[in-house]
Amino acid sequence: MRMLIFAKRNAKELLRDPLTVAFGLGFPLVLLLLLSAIQANIPVPLFEIKQLSPGIAVFGLSFMTLFSATLIAKDRGSLLLQRLYTTPLRPLDFILGYTLPILPFSLAQSVICYAVAFLLGLEVTLNCLLAILFILPVSLLYIALGLLFGSILTDKQAGGVCGALLTNLSAWLSGIWFDLELVGGAFQRIANLLPFVHAVEMERAVLGGDLRGAMPHLLWVLGYAVLLLALAVVLFLRQMRRQ
């Protein structure tokens, strides 16, 4: 109950920040529309709507890291967290309270992304529902990154690292904007060792009805999500003890 009250507060803080709504929902949609317009003029297989929409759905989640990291870092900086540490809230309440409100936000973002993709010509199938469901482990991955960075960075640093660095890195290394095979070499090997390309490939496979093909990618995503969440919890608890 106490955790839910704290989670509700975090949801309100996120939804009342106009930048969150603008970047969380608006920016991925602008990209989807822009790249679809390019595709209409100069056809590129990578920007076909069935390839592009899963990529944008995953890319949009990188903003969840920014939102969650900034919120936690601000709460640390303003000492609101310190005040709350002296209440009966337990460590798990804090971790769940920061994690849970972002999951429905991520789902809503994916629903809107695919809804716009339908308008742009994506075929409406049951696979779309599955693709939205498969967004959950990817969301967990990005939320874990937010918890991790929010526990160690100031809000300004979180803005720089998550807003600029992570969104770009996760986009470049995910195969959304260009085929990784075109670059090849170490770049491609590094990208394949990271979870971002697997998240996109998983979404593409699910959307294409290839659940078996999605499974290896799901394992990569889940593996990273669990690992990062564990690391995030350790770092969050460490800053909690270091008051």
Binding site: R9, K12, E13, D17, S78, L79, L80, Q82, R83, T86
Partner: peptide
């Protein structure tokens, strides 16, 4: 102890969006 104490930190420590 946390069930019967309260702290008002030096910084205002409020939730700004609420």
């Amino acid at each position: 102890i946390k069930s019967f104490i309260a702290v008002s930190p030096q910084e205002t420590a409020v939730a700004p969006g609420l």
